[in-house]
């Protein structure tokens, strides 16, 4: 009886081990080791990261556009910038008139360290100005977007105080601003110390804490308009595979973002309380 039992266990184990062989299962039994995908993805699209900002260096505005393409997940070949894209920024006047600013592909130089699509001289965005972007490529679908350039952040009168590791201030409500970033700049360098979302039609009280000395330091407040703020906030870059997430886009067509920022520098030295 025990012998028979032992034999049957051996036989069972052999039977079960055989289908364990991956190739047999894949090719003869028909359990493929690749997923059955039922929907085709459209990957002939551009991925744009365009930021307009007000400041310049060497007579050139620091606004830029970085363009790549969307790749099929299993067939990508480069992370480099995509050449041969016609990048055009247009300013839309109140009467609908368009002023074109070409952004040609520009290699690194003394002012800029990356290869980017950048404006020539004469491009100076101002708050409230309406811009459109179009990125055209011969083989990929065109990308379009638009924005309203944000205002310079403004402090509420007498709201700023800084002492020890605490900075307190209030920012005036402005509908063109969606989000603020705060950087403290001192002799030790530049330090990110906080991020706040703006309030609808209300001044925004802000209290920032830092372990950096604030005496004699400068506070730089960046203000992001809606589309750039949403792109930053919508960054589900989580360590997660095979889960649903949408592509990142605040463009009207294509992937990516066309956004803008403005900023305010405050010298913290004289306001110590």
């Amino acid at each position: 009886m025990k012998k028979r039992m032992r034999r049957s266990i051996y036989a069972l184990m052999i039977m079960l081990f055989l289908p364990g062989c991956e190739k047999i299962v894949d090719y003869y039994i028909g359990f493929p080791q690749q997923p059955e995908i039922t929907v085709e993805a459209d990957t002939d699209q551009l991925n744009v990261f365009g930021v307009l900002r007000p400041d310049s260096i060497g007579g050139f505005n620091k606004s830029f556009v970085f363009v790549q393409r969307i790749w099929p997940a299993l067939d990508f070949s480069t992370f480099s910038i995509l050449p041969d894209v016609e990048v055009l920024i247009e300013s839309v006047g109140e009467d609908g008139t368009l002023t074109a600013f070409p952004f040609p592909l520009s290699p690194p130089d003394a002012n800029f360290k990356d290869t980017l699509y950048r404006p020539a001289t004469g491009f100076t965005p101002v708050p409230g100005q309406h811009f459109r972007i179009s990125c055209l490529h011969s083989e990929l679908k065109d990308a379009y977007g638009e924005l309203i350039f944000p205002a310079v952040p403004a402090l509420t009168e007498n709201s700023l105080s800084a002492a020890g590791g605490r900075i307190s201030l209030s920012l005036k409500a402005d509908s063109s601003i969606e989000m603020y970033d705060f950087y403290l700049k001192n002799n030790a360098g530049s330090h990110f110390i906080g991020r706040e979302l703006s309030l609808d039609n209300e001044d925004l009280p802000v209290i920032l804490y830092t372990n950096q000395p604030v005496e004699g330091a400068k506070l730089r407040i960046f203000a992001y308009e809606n589309r750039l703020a949403t792109y930053i906030g919508n960054s589900n870059t989580s360590l997660n595979f095979n889960k649903y997430r949408e592509g990142f886009s605040t463009l009207d067509s294509g992937y990516g973002v066309f956004g803008a920022l403005n900023f305010l520098d405050i010298d913290l030295g004289p306001v110590l309380k």
Binding site: D42, V51, F64, F66, A73, K185, F248
Partner: peptide, 28 residues
């Protein structure tokens, strides 16, 4: 939701003016 699209996500530090990326795979 198996990833079919590769889209780079961009980080931008406006103070240091540094642009960097991370590849994100997205399902259709």
């Amino acid at each position: 939701s198996i990833e079919q699209i590769l889209q780079n996500y961009y980080y931008y530090n406006p103070d240091a003016e540094e642009l960097s990326f991370f590849p994100i795979w997205i399902p259709e």
